[in-house]
Design a protein around this nucleic acid. Structure first.
Lengths: 261, 261
DNA sequence: CTTTTCATG
DNA sequence: CATGCAAAG
Protein backbone atom coordinates (compact mmCIF):
# COMPACT_ATOMS: atom_id res chain seq x y z
CA UNK A 1 0.00 0.00 0.00
CA UNK A 2 1.37 3.39 -1.00
CA UNK A 3 0.59 6.74 0.61
CA UNK A 4 1.80 10.02 -0.91
CA UNK A 5 1.80 13.48 0.66
CA UNK A 6 2.22 16.71 -1.29
CA UNK A 7 1.92 20.36 -0.39
CA UNK A 8 0.70 21.62 -3.76
CA UNK A 9 0.68 25.36 -2.93
CA UNK A 10 -2.65 25.89 -4.64
CA UNK A 11 -4.51 23.02 -6.22
CA UNK A 12 -5.65 25.33 -9.02
CA UNK A 13 -2.06 26.22 -9.66
CA UNK A 14 -0.84 22.62 -9.95
CA UNK A 15 -3.82 21.77 -12.11
CA UNK A 16 -2.54 24.30 -14.66
CA UNK A 17 0.83 22.59 -14.44
CA UNK A 18 -0.33 19.08 -15.23
CA UNK A 19 -1.52 17.69 -11.89
CA UNK A 20 -3.88 15.29 -13.65
CA UNK A 21 -1.11 14.00 -15.88
CA UNK A 22 0.99 13.31 -12.78
CA UNK A 23 -1.92 11.79 -10.89
CA UNK A 24 -2.72 9.39 -13.73
CA UNK A 25 0.77 7.87 -13.49
CA UNK A 26 0.58 7.24 -9.74
CA UNK A 27 -0.12 3.83 -8.31
CA UNK A 28 -0.78 5.24 -4.86
CA UNK A 29 -3.69 4.13 -2.72
CA UNK A 30 -3.97 7.39 -0.82
CA UNK A 31 -2.75 10.86 -1.77
CA UNK A 32 -2.79 13.58 0.84
CA UNK A 33 -2.59 17.16 -0.39
CA UNK A 34 -1.90 20.24 1.67
CA UNK A 35 -2.27 23.95 0.98
CA UNK A 36 -5.00 23.36 -1.56
CA UNK A 37 -6.04 27.02 -1.11
CA UNK A 38 -9.55 26.60 -2.41
CA UNK A 39 -13.10 26.18 -1.19
CA UNK A 40 -15.25 23.50 -2.77
CA UNK A 41 -17.21 25.88 -4.96
CA UNK A 42 -14.01 27.27 -6.44
CA UNK A 43 -12.76 23.91 -7.69
CA UNK A 44 -15.86 22.03 -8.77
CA UNK A 45 -14.36 21.14 -12.15
CA UNK A 46 -11.03 20.03 -10.70
CA UNK A 47 -12.75 17.80 -8.15
CA UNK A 48 -14.88 16.29 -10.91
CA UNK A 49 -11.84 15.48 -13.02
CA UNK A 50 -10.21 13.70 -10.09
CA UNK A 51 -13.39 11.78 -9.28
CA UNK A 52 -13.72 10.81 -12.95
CA UNK A 53 -10.46 8.91 -12.62
CA UNK A 54 -11.89 6.77 -9.85
CA UNK A 55 -10.66 8.63 -6.80
CA UNK A 56 -12.71 9.34 -3.71
CA UNK A 57 -11.98 12.91 -2.72
CA UNK A 58 -12.42 14.51 0.68
CA UNK A 59 -11.78 18.22 1.01
CA UNK A 60 -11.32 20.45 4.04
CA UNK A 61 -11.13 24.20 3.44
CA UNK A 62 -10.20 27.18 5.58
CA UNK A 63 -12.80 29.82 6.30
CA UNK A 64 -10.53 32.37 4.67
CA UNK A 65 -10.53 32.22 0.88
CA UNK A 66 -7.37 31.18 -0.90
CA UNK A 67 -5.76 30.03 2.33
CA UNK A 68 -4.56 26.68 3.67
CA UNK A 69 -6.79 23.61 3.16
CA UNK A 70 -6.18 19.88 2.75
CA UNK A 71 -7.57 17.14 0.53
CA UNK A 72 -7.37 13.36 0.58
CA UNK A 73 -7.65 11.26 -2.56
CA UNK A 74 -8.13 7.54 -2.08
CA UNK A 75 -8.91 4.53 -4.23
CA UNK A 76 -11.24 3.22 -1.55
CA UNK A 77 -13.69 5.39 0.33
CA UNK A 78 -12.56 5.73 3.94
CA UNK A 79 -14.65 4.00 6.56
CA UNK A 80 -14.75 7.25 8.51
CA UNK A 81 -13.24 10.71 8.57
CA UNK A 82 -12.91 13.30 11.28
CA UNK A 83 -11.50 16.78 10.94
CA UNK A 84 -11.94 18.62 14.23
CA UNK A 85 -9.49 19.15 17.06
CA UNK A 86 -12.38 20.44 19.18
CA UNK A 87 -11.00 23.94 19.01
CA UNK A 88 -12.56 26.79 17.08
CA UNK A 89 -9.15 28.32 16.70
CA UNK A 90 -7.50 25.19 15.33
CA UNK A 91 -10.43 24.09 13.21
CA UNK A 92 -10.92 27.34 11.31
CA UNK A 93 -8.05 26.90 8.87
CA UNK A 94 -8.82 23.56 7.23
CA UNK A 95 -5.56 21.95 8.26
CA UNK A 96 -6.55 18.42 9.14
CA UNK A 97 -8.40 15.32 8.12
CA UNK A 98 -8.06 11.91 9.73
CA UNK A 99 -9.38 8.94 7.81
CA UNK A 100 -9.82 5.33 8.74
CA UNK A 101 -9.25 2.56 6.22
CA UNK A 102 -9.89 -0.73 8.00
CA UNK A 103 -7.35 -0.95 10.83
CA UNK A 104 -5.18 1.82 9.35
CA UNK A 105 -5.64 5.44 10.36
CA UNK A 106 -4.18 8.13 8.10
CA UNK A 107 -3.97 11.72 9.28
CA UNK A 108 -3.32 14.44 6.71
CA UNK A 109 -2.01 17.58 8.41
CA UNK A 110 -0.98 20.97 7.16
CA UNK A 111 0.84 22.10 10.29
CA UNK A 112 0.90 25.89 10.70
CA UNK A 113 3.83 27.95 9.52
CA UNK A 114 5.36 29.65 12.56
CA UNK A 115 5.99 32.94 10.78
CA UNK A 116 3.61 35.75 11.53
CA UNK A 117 2.87 39.02 9.85
CA UNK A 118 6.17 40.83 10.18
CA UNK A 119 8.16 37.69 9.51
CA UNK A 120 8.27 37.37 13.26
CA UNK A 121 7.67 34.15 15.20
CA UNK A 122 4.22 35.12 16.36
CA UNK A 123 2.50 32.04 14.98
CA UNK A 124 4.78 29.53 16.68
CA UNK A 125 2.50 29.24 19.76
CA UNK A 126 -0.43 28.46 17.46
CA UNK A 127 1.69 25.91 15.64
CA UNK A 128 2.53 24.22 18.95
CA UNK A 129 -1.10 24.15 20.01
CA UNK A 130 -1.91 22.44 16.72
CA UNK A 131 0.85 19.82 17.11
CA UNK A 132 -0.21 19.11 20.68
CA UNK A 133 -3.91 18.90 19.99
CA UNK A 134 -3.42 16.42 17.15
CA UNK A 135 -0.88 14.14 18.79
CA UNK A 136 -2.72 14.23 22.13
CA UNK A 137 -5.83 13.13 20.29
CA UNK A 138 -3.97 10.30 18.55
CA UNK A 139 -2.07 9.20 21.61
CA UNK A 140 -4.60 6.60 22.82
CA UNK A 141 -4.51 4.89 19.46
CA UNK A 142 -0.73 4.99 19.28
CA UNK A 143 -0.34 3.76 22.87
CA UNK A 144 -2.66 0.84 22.27
CA UNK A 145 -0.57 -0.30 19.30
CA UNK A 146 -2.88 0.77 16.51
CA UNK A 147 -1.59 1.41 13.00
CA UNK A 148 -1.50 5.19 12.53
CA UNK A 149 0.27 7.28 9.92
CA UNK A 150 0.50 11.07 10.22
CA UNK A 151 1.60 12.66 6.96
CA UNK A 152 1.87 16.21 5.80
CA UNK A 153 3.74 19.48 5.83
CA UNK A 154 5.11 19.79 9.38
CA UNK A 155 6.75 23.15 8.65
CA UNK A 156 9.66 22.03 10.85
CA UNK A 157 12.94 20.38 9.87
CA UNK A 158 13.74 17.83 12.59
CA UNK A 159 17.55 18.10 12.70
CA UNK A 160 20.53 19.81 11.12
CA UNK A 161 20.79 17.26 8.34
CA UNK A 162 17.25 18.04 7.26
CA UNK A 163 18.07 21.40 5.69
CA UNK A 164 20.90 22.61 3.52
CA UNK A 165 21.77 25.70 5.58
CA UNK A 166 21.23 24.83 9.25
CA UNK A 167 23.69 27.39 10.59
CA UNK A 168 22.07 30.40 8.98
CA UNK A 169 18.53 29.31 9.78
CA UNK A 170 18.56 28.87 13.55
CA UNK A 171 16.43 31.99 13.83
CA UNK A 172 14.18 31.08 10.92
CA UNK A 173 10.81 29.68 11.87
CA UNK A 174 10.85 26.01 10.99
CA UNK A 175 14.28 25.45 12.53
CA UNK A 176 14.27 27.35 15.80
CA UNK A 177 15.36 25.27 18.75
CA UNK A 178 11.88 25.55 20.20
CA UNK A 179 10.26 24.09 17.09
CA UNK A 180 12.83 21.31 16.66
CA UNK A 181 12.51 20.41 20.34
CA UNK A 182 8.76 20.30 20.03
CA UNK A 183 8.85 18.00 17.01
CA UNK A 184 11.50 15.76 18.50
CA UNK A 185 9.50 15.42 21.69
CA UNK A 186 6.70 13.99 19.57
CA UNK A 187 9.09 11.58 17.87
CA UNK A 188 10.39 10.47 21.26
CA UNK A 189 6.90 9.63 22.41
CA UNK A 190 6.70 6.80 19.89
CA UNK A 191 6.35 8.25 16.43
CA UNK A 192 8.93 7.42 13.77
CA UNK A 193 10.02 9.74 10.98
CA UNK A 194 10.01 6.98 8.39
CA UNK A 195 12.36 8.51 5.83
CA UNK A 196 14.98 9.43 8.42
CA UNK A 197 14.77 6.05 10.14
CA UNK A 198 15.69 4.40 6.88
CA UNK A 199 18.38 6.91 5.89
CA UNK A 200 19.81 7.90 9.26
CA UNK A 201 22.75 9.96 8.05
CA UNK A 202 22.01 10.90 4.46
CA UNK A 203 22.08 14.57 3.66
CA UNK A 204 20.66 16.41 0.68
CA UNK A 205 17.14 14.98 0.84
CA UNK A 206 14.62 17.80 0.94
CA UNK A 207 10.95 18.36 0.24
CA UNK A 208 10.75 22.16 0.06
CA UNK A 209 12.82 24.83 -1.65
CA UNK A 210 12.32 28.59 -1.71
CA UNK A 211 11.06 29.50 -5.13
CA UNK A 212 13.68 32.17 -5.53
CA UNK A 213 15.57 31.49 -8.78
CA UNK A 214 18.26 28.82 -8.64
CA UNK A 215 17.48 27.61 -5.14
CA UNK A 216 15.90 24.32 -6.14
CA UNK A 217 18.50 23.76 -8.89
CA UNK A 218 21.21 24.07 -6.22
CA UNK A 219 19.15 21.86 -3.88
CA UNK A 220 19.19 24.42 -1.09
CA UNK A 221 16.14 22.93 0.58
CA UNK A 222 14.46 21.76 3.74
CA UNK A 223 12.90 18.41 4.63
CA UNK A 224 9.72 19.56 6.34
CA UNK A 225 7.23 17.17 4.77
CA UNK A 226 7.20 14.00 6.81
CA UNK A 227 5.46 10.70 7.33
CA UNK A 228 5.33 9.70 10.98
CA UNK A 229 4.43 6.10 11.80
CA UNK A 230 3.01 4.96 15.13
CA UNK A 231 4.83 2.28 17.07
CA UNK A 232 2.19 -0.21 16.01
CA UNK A 233 2.52 0.58 12.33
CA UNK A 234 6.32 0.58 12.25
CA UNK A 235 6.78 -3.15 11.70
CA UNK A 236 4.64 -2.91 8.56
CA UNK A 237 6.52 0.02 7.04
CA UNK A 238 8.40 -0.91 3.89
CA UNK A 239 10.00 2.34 2.71
CA UNK A 240 9.86 6.09 2.96
CA UNK A 241 10.56 8.06 -0.18
CA UNK A 242 10.87 11.56 -1.57
CA UNK A 243 10.04 12.52 -5.16
CA UNK A 244 12.21 15.61 -5.66
CA UNK A 245 11.80 15.69 -9.42
CA UNK A 246 8.07 16.21 -9.38
CA UNK A 247 7.55 19.87 -10.20
CA UNK A 248 4.57 22.18 -9.87
CA UNK A 249 4.88 23.42 -6.30
CA UNK A 250 7.61 24.73 -4.03
CA UNK A 251 7.26 21.38 -2.24
CA UNK A 252 7.74 17.97 -3.80
CA UNK A 253 5.70 14.86 -2.96
CA UNK A 254 6.92 12.43 -0.34
CA UNK A 255 5.50 9.14 0.80
CA UNK A 256 5.66 5.70 2.27
CA UNK A 257 4.80 2.14 1.33
CA UNK A 258 3.41 -0.16 3.97
CA UNK A 259 2.20 -3.72 4.16
CA UNK A 260 -1.50 -4.02 3.74
CA UNK A 261 -3.09 -5.25 6.93
CA UNK B 1 1.59 70.09 -34.03
CA UNK B 2 0.29 66.74 -32.88
CA UNK B 3 -1.04 65.87 -29.43
CA UNK B 4 -1.88 62.29 -28.45
CA UNK B 5 -3.79 61.07 -25.39
CA UNK B 6 -3.77 57.48 -24.14
CA UNK B 7 -5.11 55.78 -21.04
CA UNK B 8 -2.44 53.09 -20.75
CA UNK B 9 -3.97 51.19 -17.80
CA UNK B 10 -0.59 50.78 -16.09
CA UNK B 11 2.53 52.24 -17.63
CA UNK B 12 4.48 49.21 -16.43
CA UNK B 13 2.01 46.98 -18.20
CA UNK B 14 2.30 48.77 -21.57
CA UNK B 15 6.06 48.84 -21.24
CA UNK B 16 6.01 45.04 -21.24
CA UNK B 17 3.88 45.19 -24.36
CA UNK B 18 6.18 47.36 -26.42
CA UNK B 19 5.34 50.91 -25.39
CA UNK B 20 8.83 52.11 -26.35
CA UNK B 21 8.53 50.54 -29.79
CA UNK B 22 5.25 52.39 -30.31
CA UNK B 23 6.60 55.62 -28.90
CA UNK B 24 9.61 55.54 -31.22
CA UNK B 25 7.33 55.56 -34.26
CA UNK B 26 5.28 58.57 -33.11
CA UNK B 27 5.85 62.03 -34.55
CA UNK B 28 3.78 63.62 -31.82
CA UNK B 29 4.87 66.76 -30.02
CA UNK B 30 3.01 65.99 -26.83
CA UNK B 31 1.77 62.66 -25.49
CA UNK B 32 -0.59 62.64 -22.53
CA UNK B 33 -0.93 59.39 -20.63
CA UNK B 34 -3.56 58.51 -18.05
CA UNK B 35 -3.85 55.73 -15.50
CA UNK B 36 -0.11 55.31 -15.28
CA UNK B 37 -0.62 53.55 -11.92
CA UNK B 38 2.88 54.13 -10.64
CA UNK B 39 4.83 56.40 -8.36
CA UNK B 40 8.10 57.85 -9.58
CA UNK B 41 10.28 55.43 -7.61
CA UNK B 42 8.48 52.45 -9.11
CA UNK B 43 9.24 53.40 -12.71
CA UNK B 44 12.71 54.95 -12.60
CA UNK B 45 13.99 52.77 -15.45
CA UNK B 46 10.92 53.35 -17.62
CA UNK B 47 11.19 57.12 -17.18
CA UNK B 48 14.88 56.98 -18.05
CA UNK B 49 14.20 55.05 -21.25
CA UNK B 50 11.66 57.67 -22.32
CA UNK B 51 14.00 60.54 -21.47
CA UNK B 52 16.79 58.80 -23.40
CA UNK B 53 14.72 59.18 -26.53
CA UNK B 54 14.61 62.94 -26.10
CA UNK B 55 11.29 63.37 -24.31
CA UNK B 56 10.67 65.66 -21.40
CA UNK B 57 8.54 63.75 -18.93
CA UNK B 58 6.30 65.14 -16.22
CA UNK B 59 4.63 62.72 -13.87
CA UNK B 60 1.79 63.13 -11.38
CA UNK B 61 1.02 60.19 -9.10
CA UNK B 62 -1.79 59.34 -6.71
CA UNK B 63 -1.06 58.94 -3.03
CA UNK B 64 -2.37 55.41 -3.24
CA UNK B 65 0.03 52.96 -4.84
CA UNK B 66 -0.90 51.39 -8.14
CA UNK B 67 -3.80 53.79 -8.62
CA UNK B 68 -4.60 56.51 -11.17
CA UNK B 69 -1.81 58.93 -12.19
CA UNK B 70 -1.02 60.92 -15.35
CA UNK B 71 2.14 61.68 -17.32
CA UNK B 72 2.97 64.13 -20.06
CA UNK B 73 5.73 63.50 -22.61
CA UNK B 74 6.78 66.44 -24.75
CA UNK B 75 9.52 67.22 -27.24
CA UNK B 76 9.89 70.69 -25.74
CA UNK B 77 9.92 71.34 -22.03
CA UNK B 78 6.74 73.16 -21.06
CA UNK B 79 7.10 76.78 -19.98
CA UNK B 80 5.09 75.98 -16.87
CA UNK B 81 3.01 73.23 -15.32
CA UNK B 82 0.37 73.26 -12.63
CA UNK B 83 -1.39 70.26 -11.15
CA UNK B 84 -3.64 71.40 -8.32
CA UNK B 85 -7.34 72.17 -8.29
CA UNK B 86 -6.89 73.72 -4.84
CA UNK B 87 -8.76 70.82 -3.27
CA UNK B 88 -7.19 68.15 -1.08
CA UNK B 89 -9.86 65.76 -2.18
CA UNK B 90 -9.36 66.36 -5.90
CA UNK B 91 -5.58 66.62 -5.75
CA UNK B 92 -4.90 63.36 -3.93
CA UNK B 93 -5.37 61.04 -6.90
CA UNK B 94 -2.88 62.38 -9.43
CA UNK B 95 -5.47 63.07 -12.09
CA UNK B 96 -4.35 66.33 -13.64
CA UNK B 97 -1.50 68.29 -15.12
CA UNK B 98 -1.84 71.51 -17.10
CA UNK B 99 1.15 72.60 -19.15
CA UNK B 100 1.85 75.77 -21.06
CA UNK B 101 3.77 75.68 -24.34
CA UNK B 102 4.00 79.28 -25.59
CA UNK B 103 0.45 80.47 -26.12
CA UNK B 104 -0.97 76.95 -26.05
CA UNK B 105 -2.25 75.38 -22.84
CA UNK B 106 -2.63 71.60 -22.70
CA UNK B 107 -4.50 69.96 -19.84
CA UNK B 108 -4.11 66.23 -19.32
CA UNK B 109 -6.96 64.86 -17.22
CA UNK B 110 -7.86 61.44 -15.93
CA UNK B 111 -11.45 62.21 -14.98
CA UNK B 112 -12.78 59.97 -12.21
CA UNK B 113 -14.75 56.83 -12.96
CA UNK B 114 -18.22 57.26 -11.48
CA UNK B 115 -18.45 53.68 -10.23
CA UNK B 116 -17.95 53.15 -6.54
CA UNK B 117 -17.26 50.11 -4.42
CA UNK B 118 -20.41 48.06 -4.96
CA UNK B 119 -20.50 48.99 -8.64
CA UNK B 120 -22.87 51.70 -7.52
CA UNK B 121 -22.77 55.31 -8.67
CA UNK B 122 -21.25 56.63 -5.48
CA UNK B 123 -18.30 58.29 -7.18
CA UNK B 124 -20.37 60.33 -9.62
CA UNK B 125 -20.52 63.34 -7.29
CA UNK B 126 -16.72 63.27 -6.98
CA UNK B 127 -16.44 63.03 -10.76
CA UNK B 128 -18.70 66.08 -11.13
CA UNK B 129 -16.66 68.06 -8.60
CA UNK B 130 -13.56 67.24 -10.61
CA UNK B 131 -15.11 68.30 -13.94
CA UNK B 132 -16.38 71.53 -12.43
CA UNK B 133 -13.18 72.44 -10.65
CA UNK B 134 -11.10 72.00 -13.78
CA UNK B 135 -13.37 73.74 -16.24
CA UNK B 136 -14.14 76.55 -13.80
CA UNK B 137 -10.43 77.07 -13.44
CA UNK B 138 -9.92 77.15 -17.21
CA UNK B 139 -12.94 79.32 -17.91
CA UNK B 140 -11.14 82.69 -17.78
CA UNK B 141 -8.62 81.49 -20.35
CA UNK B 142 -11.31 80.08 -22.58
CA UNK B 143 -13.49 83.16 -22.29
CA UNK B 144 -10.63 85.45 -23.19
CA UNK B 145 -10.00 83.51 -26.38
CA UNK B 146 -6.85 81.70 -25.36
CA UNK B 147 -5.77 78.49 -27.04
CA UNK B 148 -6.56 75.65 -24.62
CA UNK B 149 -6.79 71.91 -25.22
CA UNK B 150 -8.17 69.54 -22.57
CA UNK B 151 -7.36 65.93 -23.38
CA UNK B 152 -7.80 62.71 -21.50
CA UNK B 153 -10.07 59.96 -20.31
CA UNK B 154 -13.37 61.70 -19.50
CA UNK B 155 -15.03 58.46 -18.42
CA UNK B 156 -18.24 59.70 -20.06
CA UNK B 157 -19.56 59.02 -23.56
CA UNK B 158 -21.16 62.28 -24.77
CA UNK B 159 -24.08 60.92 -26.79
CA UNK B 160 -25.75 57.74 -27.99
CA UNK B 161 -23.50 57.47 -31.03
CA UNK B 162 -20.45 57.37 -28.78
CA UNK B 163 -20.99 53.86 -27.55
CA UNK B 164 -22.02 50.64 -29.24
CA UNK B 165 -24.77 49.71 -26.77
CA UNK B 166 -26.45 52.95 -25.63
CA UNK B 167 -29.78 51.35 -24.79
CA UNK B 168 -28.40 48.81 -22.35
CA UNK B 169 -26.02 51.23 -20.67
CA UNK B 170 -28.27 54.04 -19.53
CA UNK B 171 -27.75 52.90 -15.96
CA UNK B 172 -24.04 52.29 -16.37
CA UNK B 173 -21.78 54.97 -14.96
CA UNK B 174 -20.28 56.77 -17.94
CA UNK B 175 -23.57 57.03 -19.77
CA UNK B 176 -26.14 58.00 -17.15
CA UNK B 177 -28.22 60.99 -18.08
CA UNK B 178 -26.66 62.96 -15.26
CA UNK B 179 -23.13 62.35 -16.56
CA UNK B 180 -24.00 63.04 -20.19
CA UNK B 181 -25.83 66.21 -19.19
CA UNK B 182 -22.85 67.34 -17.16
CA UNK B 183 -20.41 66.78 -20.01
CA UNK B 184 -22.67 68.38 -22.59
CA UNK B 185 -23.12 71.42 -20.38
CA UNK B 186 -19.36 71.87 -20.56
CA UNK B 187 -19.39 71.51 -24.34
CA UNK B 188 -22.17 74.10 -24.57
CA UNK B 189 -20.09 76.58 -22.63
CA UNK B 190 -17.60 76.83 -25.50
CA UNK B 191 -15.55 73.64 -25.62
CA UNK B 192 -15.56 71.53 -28.75
CA UNK B 193 -15.26 67.77 -28.86
CA UNK B 194 -12.86 67.83 -31.81
CA UNK B 195 -13.40 64.32 -33.13
CA UNK B 196 -17.19 64.59 -33.04
CA UNK B 197 -17.20 68.05 -34.61
CA UNK B 198 -15.38 66.64 -37.61
CA UNK B 199 -17.39 63.42 -37.81
CA UNK B 200 -20.83 64.55 -36.66
CA UNK B 201 -22.79 61.42 -37.43
CA UNK B 202 -20.25 58.64 -37.74
CA UNK B 203 -20.79 55.66 -35.51
CA UNK B 204 -18.40 52.90 -34.57
CA UNK B 205 -15.52 55.10 -33.41
CA UNK B 206 -14.52 54.17 -29.88
CA UNK B 207 -11.55 54.53 -27.58
CA UNK B 208 -12.32 51.96 -24.87
CA UNK B 209 -13.47 48.35 -24.91
CA UNK B 210 -14.11 46.00 -22.00
CA UNK B 211 -11.30 43.52 -21.98
CA UNK B 212 -13.67 40.61 -21.83
CA UNK B 213 -12.88 38.25 -24.72
CA UNK B 214 -14.19 39.22 -28.14
CA UNK B 215 -15.48 42.64 -27.14
CA UNK B 216 -12.78 44.66 -28.87
CA UNK B 217 -12.83 42.35 -31.90
CA UNK B 218 -16.55 43.03 -32.25
CA UNK B 219 -15.91 46.76 -31.62
CA UNK B 220 -18.38 46.92 -28.77
CA UNK B 221 -16.79 50.03 -27.34
CA UNK B 222 -17.22 53.50 -25.90
CA UNK B 223 -15.73 56.82 -26.98
CA UNK B 224 -14.79 58.25 -23.61
CA UNK B 225 -11.32 59.61 -24.42
CA UNK B 226 -11.73 63.09 -25.84
CA UNK B 227 -9.90 66.20 -26.90
CA UNK B 228 -11.81 69.36 -26.12
CA UNK B 229 -10.69 72.57 -27.78
CA UNK B 230 -11.42 76.05 -26.44
CA UNK B 231 -13.25 78.52 -28.65
CA UNK B 232 -9.98 80.32 -29.25
CA UNK B 233 -8.14 77.20 -30.32
CA UNK B 234 -10.87 75.88 -32.61
CA UNK B 235 -9.84 77.85 -35.74
CA UNK B 236 -6.37 76.27 -35.50
CA UNK B 237 -7.59 72.68 -35.16
CA UNK B 238 -6.76 70.53 -38.17
CA UNK B 239 -8.05 67.08 -37.28
CA UNK B 240 -9.12 64.84 -34.48
CA UNK B 241 -8.21 61.17 -34.73
CA UNK B 242 -8.52 57.82 -33.01
CA UNK B 243 -5.92 55.04 -33.26
CA UNK B 244 -8.03 51.95 -32.57
CA UNK B 245 -5.40 49.51 -33.75
CA UNK B 246 -2.83 50.42 -31.13
CA UNK B 247 -2.95 47.61 -28.59
CA UNK B 248 -1.59 47.31 -25.06
CA UNK B 249 -4.39 48.78 -22.97
CA UNK B 250 -8.16 48.55 -22.80
CA UNK B 251 -8.11 52.08 -24.23
CA UNK B 252 -6.56 53.14 -27.54
CA UNK B 253 -4.76 56.42 -28.16
CA UNK B 254 -6.64 59.39 -29.56
CA UNK B 255 -5.40 62.81 -30.56
CA UNK B 256 -5.51 66.00 -32.51
CA UNK B 257 -3.32 68.00 -34.87
CA UNK B 258 -3.36 71.77 -34.63
CA UNK B 259 -1.63 74.65 -36.35
CA UNK B 260 1.44 75.81 -34.52
CA UNK B 261 0.93 79.29 -33.17
C1' DC C 1 9.52 34.53 -5.92
C1' DT C 2 4.63 32.51 -5.76
C1' DT C 3 -0.50 31.85 -5.15
C1' DT C 4 -4.54 33.92 -4.22
C1' DT C 5 -7.59 37.93 -2.80
C1' DC C 6 -9.01 42.61 -3.06
C1' DA C 7 -10.06 47.17 -4.91
C1' DT C 8 -10.49 49.46 -9.07
C1' DG C 9 -11.32 50.14 -13.62
C1' DC D 1 -11.07 40.43 -17.95
C1' DA D 2 -6.83 43.10 -16.43
C1' DT D 3 -3.67 45.92 -13.38
C1' DG D 4 -1.32 46.34 -9.30
C1' DC D 5 -1.40 45.43 -4.22
C1' DA D 6 -1.59 42.86 -0.07
C1' DA D 7 -1.35 38.80 2.81
C1' DA D 8 0.78 34.58 3.36
C1' DG D 9 4.14 31.23 2.67
Amino acid sequence: MKVISWNVNGIRSVFKKGFMRWLNTQDADVICLQETRAQRDQIRSELARIADKGWFVHLVAAEKKGYSGVAMLSRKDPDSIWTSLDSDELDREGRLQVARFGDLTIANGYFPNGSGKNRDHSRIPYKFRFYEALFDKLEPQRASGERVLVVGDYNTAPTEIDLARPKSNRKTSGFTHAECDHLNAILNKGWTDVFRAQHPNETGHYSWWSNRPGVREKNVGWRIDLTLASSGLLPDVQSGFILPNVMGSDHCPIGVTIDAS
